[in-house]
Design a protein around this nucleic acid. Structure first.
Lengths: 140, 140
DNA sequence: CAGGATCCGGTCGGATACTG
DNA sequence: CAGTATCCGACCGGATCCTG
């Protein structure tokens, strides 16, 4: 499926975009919630940082906490739980003392990583311009 | 700049990733906040839907409200204000009665649209699998 | 028509204390 | 070490009313 078809998916598939009689393309209810469900996936405060830290392979819980500046235990645990639920991250616990738990990306998580890095790419290219726009807007 | 360099940017540019002595790649404070600043841009509840609705050209305020299901006046106004501040959307007011205001994407906004659609592409391809993962996780 | 102002409930997320 | 449990403040966003 092409990117544009995400908005213009024909009505015999999951959702469609009504064009008439509005003067502009309209979001189908299903399509709109569909987009936001995925944005919620990467849009929360820590998911992308966790995924990025797992890019190179398995990482222990405590090492994740150290690698991600400012994350609390609570949010790290909750974020990992959600990523596991979505099947982006898998958890491996080793029966040792002291306990050792490793997290790693699933193939699905890896594919999301590359997509998110594309967005990060755009960010890196346009970050300076956005900063300038904000400064100018706030000044005016 | 490549996608991977977003995380591994050399220290003579904006930010860097410290590797030693941790067992995994670590986020630089600046780099982490940099990523999140952009994710906040597209991660909030309405931005992407607004940008998507403006894909085809200028749209009036009231038409935007009609095109985006569930958006309140308050949030539409706030979202448009933020997008204008970032330079992704521009506003044109016509001195008529009744007043008419049109919004359209700037070139910067258009370039973000195509990037976000790439993410939407990934979503469309993997949506079903994520749903299955969640169902399985919740069952177990 | 295109917003601004205000109120308010729900949720996100940080801090802290505790456990197997 | 790798979490869980609880409290609580901040803020996000919806509803409503008002205005040029």
């Amino acid at each position: 499926m092409s990117a544009d078809e995400v908005r213009r998916r024909p009505s015999n598939t999951r959702a469609s975009v009504r064009r008439a009689p509005g003067p502009c393309a309209r979001w189908d209810d299903e399509n709109a919630s569909f987009i936001r469900e995925i944005l919620d996936l990467v849009g929360d405060k820590w998911s992308v940082l966790v995924i990025g830290t797992l890019a190179d392979g398995a990482v222990r819980y405590s090492d994740l906490a150290d690698a991600i500046p400012g994350v609390s235990q609570r949010m790290l645990t909750l974020t990992l739980k959600q990523l596991r639920r979505d099947g982006l991250v898998e958890r491996t616990a080793y029966a040792e003392v002291p306990p050792r738990v490793e997290y790693r990306l699933t193939p699905l998580g890896t594919s999301l990583l590359s997509t998110v890095l594309a967005l990060a790419d755009w960010s890196a290219s346009n970050y300076a311009e956005i900063r300038r726009n904000r400064t100018a807007y706030d000044a005016g």
